[in-house]
Every structure is written in structure tokens, then in C-alpha cells.
Design a protein around this nucleic acid. Structure first.
Length: 301
DNA sequence: TTCCAGGAGAGAG
DNA sequence: CTCTCTCATGGA
């Protein structure tokens, strides 16, 4: 199956930017599991070639995939709004076409609970082992993978089995969240209908979900583009480039919304992925010295 | 060996 | 409110 006219879209930047942990690049095609089926996607120009392990109805599958990849959004317009300085200009130029995915909610909740105090490659390994152990086997041609474990599967296992997958001290957080979904205490269908502040507050009631993880869930699953996950790198960027001093999370949040506007989540993702792709910290500091359009922040007490 | 990674909870001040 | 310590794990 094909999707044409995927303009201003980069499959590579989108799937490799650390918002999903499930995609593997094999011979120019990305293989991943999305909502219970393996997808194989490759991009040739503005055309996406897609294969699925499931039998798909084209009339529903194409809109589903377009929504997952956020293809319906006017991303160039957003990037114009957040292209405020030399550093953002470089990030946007380097990562043109990167989009923020709309991922399945439970998988996103569980994945970012596991992300705390962890690194991307290890998070990927944990999720792969959890899926192999607690998910269902899927096959597309010679590619074998496993669906993301259901809340029921993770709620009824033991912490020892989770530890064997390498989740570490996050085992109790993961099991508690799964149990809350099963019991209905965490109503995911209701969370999907909530506003950004409501959804964030509801998610943060769970142990293991703080501000940053809740913002990742709101941004990478619920489409709340004003969500701003502040990890150590984003904090470092804002402090070096825009504040030139230590800043609290509250200060960064306030400044970022004023500086980038209500699509700050998109700006954040370009900053996050760019600093990981091009970890030239001296360059950041150099830009901080020559940048003049951003001196408004951090002057008052 | 120590440090770090898409942090958060608990406690102290 | 802010600061600090700890948490399990593996790669650098």
C-alpha cells in the first residue's frame, strides 16, 4: 500500500528522534509494531510504501497511518512560528520533516514510565524484552516481533519477572500503572478526552509519573503540542542558550511558552533531537554569545 | 571505578 | 517552595 504526497515529512527523523522506542531500520525500511501489527515503512521522496502483518481495510488504514505520523498537520507553519534564532534555524534545517507521532496511549504511558533515569538504547531493550515475554508474536514475511504487553498482562505478573526484563526499580511503577488501568482507576479513554492540564494532572496521580513523563505522554500520544517535556538536555539547552545561568523548571516553562508559543512541544522535539544528532556543545555556547534577539529572558529576578 | 541516561519520590530545611 | 539523596541497570 502507498501513501502519496507526504510532503515536508521525514520518516527517518520522525522515527529516530526518541519519541518511539519500537522502530528498527533494516535495509532502507523501518520495521515496528503499532497497535498490534507489524508495519514495514519506507520512504521514497514524498511517497510512503507500507506493508502490514494484518489484513488492513484501506479506507481506515490510510487515515490511521496518517494520524499516527501526524501527516495532516501543517508542520511548516509551526516551524515558521518557532524559528526564532540561529540555533532553532539549524535544528529545523537539519531535521526538516520531523513530526511528532500520535502513539497508542497505554504503550506511551508504560514506555515513558520506563524512561526515567534511563537512556534510549536501554529503554528499547527493556521494551523489546517485555514484549517478547508478555506480548503476542507477530510475523511479517521473515520479520518477527511482538505486540506491546497489555495492561492485564503486566498487572498480573510478578515484579521478579519484570526485573528479569531489566526494568530495575521502575518495576513497581509499571505494575501499579497497569493495575490502575485494569481496575479503571486510570481511565485511558477518559484521559484522551481531557484538556492538556487535566490529562497531565490525571497522569501525574500515578507513582513514577512526574511532570516530565506526563508531558512526554501528553505530547507523543495525546497531541497536546503545548506540552513541554524538560529532560536534562532540554534544561541544559535553555540554560546555556537562552538564560545563560541556572534556571528552575518553572522559569524554563514560562520562558519557553512565551518564546515559542503554543506549539512549544514541536520546538522542543527539534531541539532535543538536534542536540543528540549534533552534540556540538561548543557550538551552542558560541551561539549563546552571538545571539542578541533573546536577551529578554532571565534579566529579572 | 566512576559517571551517565528523555526522573521521580521522600525527606529536610 | 528548593535542595539533596537514593533508586536498578548497563554501556562508556
Amino acid at each position: 500500500m502507498q501513501i502519496r504526497n507526504a510532503t515536508d515529512f521525514s520518516l527517518k527523523h520522525t522515527l529516530e528522534s526518541g519519541q518511539s522506542f519500537r522502530w528498527n531500520l533494516i535495509d532502507d525500511a523501518y520495521y515496528g509494531v503499532v497497535e498490534g501489527r507489524i508495519l514495514k515503512i519506507c520512504q521514497i521522496g514524498t511517497t510512503l510504501c507500507v506493508e502490514s502483518s494484518a489484513t488492513e481495510d484501506k479506507t481506515t488504514f490510510v487515515p490511521f497511518l496518517q494520524h499516527y505520523l501526524d501527516l495532516g498537520r501543517d508542520v511548516p507553519k509551526i516551524l515558521t512560528q518557532v524559528n526564532n534564532d540561529a540555533y532553532m534555524h539549524r535544528a529545523i534545517d537539519k531535521l526538516w520533516g520531523m513530526r511528532i507521532l500520535n502513539q497508542e496511549l497505554w504503550e506511551t504511558v508504560a514506555s515513558f514510565i520506563l524512561s526515567q533515569n534511563n537512556n534510549v538504547s536501554r529503554i528499547r531493550g527493556i521494551i523489546r524484552r517485555l514484549s517478547e515475554r508478555f506480548g503476542e508474536q507477530l510475523i511479517l514475511a521473515r520479520y518477527v516481533d511482538y505486540s506491546f504487553p497489555s495492561p492485564e498482562a503486566l498487572a498480573t505478573t510478578t515484579e521478579d519477572e519484570l526485573l528479569a526484563c531489566g526494568v530495575g526499580y521502575r518495576a513497581s511503577y509499571l505494575r501499579d500503572a497497569a493495575a490502575a488501568v485494569v481496575s479503571g482507576e486510570l481511565a485511558l479513554t477518559a484521559v484522551k478526552e481531557m484538556s492538556y492540564p487535566e490529562a497531565k494532572r490525571e497522569l501525574m496521580r500515578r507513582k513514577g509519573i512526574g511532570e516530565k513523563v506526563a508531558d512526554c505522554i501528553c505530547l507523543f500520544s495525546l497531541g497536546h503540542l503545548s506540552a513541554l517535556p524538560i529532560d536534562v538536555w532540554i534544561k541544559r539547552i535553555f540554560e546555556t542558550l537562552y538564560f545563560r545561568r541556572r534556571a528552575t523548571y518553572h522559569e524554563i516553562r514560562e520562558f519557553a511558552h512565551a518564546y515559542f508559543g503554543d506549539r512549544v512541544g514541536y520546538a522542543q522535539q527539534y531541539l532535543f533531537h538536534y542536540v543528540h544528532e549534533c552534540p556540538n556543545w561548543a557550538d551552542v555556547e558560541h551561539l549563546a554569545l552571538i545571539e542578541t534577539s533573546i536577551t529578554a529572558c532571565g534579566r529579572e529576578s
